[in-house]
């Protein structure tokens, strides 16, 4: 930057740094504490460094079915991400036109988003009960999570489509693309980074969801429910070890998503398309 920054910049920068510390500090602390020695406690000082608490996780005997919950949560998150992408991308495209009932549909989705999660869970649990059905993670749990990820995905689509110029699609139509070709060749490829964003939110929101799943997961817990149960009865650094593991998974998913978005954007900004290069030679 050539010109001098005002003093307020430095004040804000300091403020922002403190905020980032506030966001990440406690999380980093528990990652460190998860390597606590076998005789160490829930807080500093570190009593040696070990993988003891991670081993305790795998051994299962002390802490319940962590591995099973983990598998269920991953499966559920993938399912939620897939449904969220297909349903909210489609709905986002539909909302670009004003149609009769669009305002109602919009507010219905927003209501679903801001409704306290436990109430939605209670409603679904009661509905299943009245229908004489058992709640389970893959149906009632899935539905409960969708009431939160679908509107969220829709809002992301609004943001993505708001920046998408319609003339690209009109140009494709002019050039003879059928509606399917238009979607396949122009709309979806151009929206791809945003769609990856929707998938990322669908996955992580599901993977960490608690309030909506609490009353709807049935007899088999998802990972957040398992962790929630642990907070009340586990008083060892195992809790931190679980936290470290699930956060690593989250970070992995986030990096894959952001990495692929960055890759696409970069290729678009700088790169030369391989396909046409190959065709030249």
């Amino acid at each position: 930057m050539e010109d001098k920054r005002p003093w307020t910049f430095y004040a804000f920068a300091a403020f922002f740094t403190l905020f980032v510390l506030f966001l990440y500090g406690p999380m980093i602390v528990i990652y460190i504490l998860s390597f606590q020695g076998p005789n160490g406690g829930m807080t500093f000082p570190l009593n040696g460094v070990s993988l003891h608490w991670f081993e305790a996780l795998i051994s299962q005997t002390r802490v319940g079915d962590i591995a099973g919950a983990f598998h269920r949560s991953i499966g559920l998150a993938v399912l939620v991400a897939l449904i969220t992408v297909s349903v909210s991308v489609l709905a986002g495209l539909g909302f670009r036109r004003r149609f009769r009932g669009s305002a109602f549909a919009f507010y219905f989705a927003i209501a679903s988003l801001i409704m306290p999660g436990l109430f939605v869970g209670l409603g679904i649990a009661l509905t299943f009960r009245l229908l004489g059905l058992e709640t389970n993670w893959y149906l009632s749990g899935l539905g409960a999570q969708l009431t939160w990820t679908l509107p969220f995905g829709l809002l992301i689509m609004f943001a993505v489509l708001g920046r998408f110029n319609r003339s690209y699609e009109e140009a494709a139509t002019d050039l003879g693309a059928t509606s399917w070709q238009r979607v396949k060749e122009v709309t979806l490829p151009m929206l791809l980074p945003g769609i990856i964003g929707v998938a990322l939110f669908g996955f992580t929101l599901s993977y960490d969801e608690l309030a909506r799943t609490a009353l709807t997961a049935g007899s088999e817990n998802t990972l957040p429910l398992e962790i929630w149960a642990m907070t009340t009865n586990v008083t060892s650094p195992t809790l931190y070890a679980v936290g470290a593991v699930t956060t690593i998974v989250s970070f992995l998913v986030i990096s894959i998503a952001l990495g692929s978005i960055a890759f696409i954007q970069r290729r678009r900004a700088l790169g030369i398309r391989q396909e046409s290069l190959a065709a030249t030679e």
Binding site: S167, E170, A171, M190, R273, S276
Partner: peptide, 14 residues
């Protein structure tokens, strides 16, 4: 055939 004001060239294609 139409030429658009912003040209509407597909940014993801050569």
């Amino acid at each position: 055939a139409m030429m658009f004001q912003s040209y509407a060239l597909f940014p993801h294609r050569s």
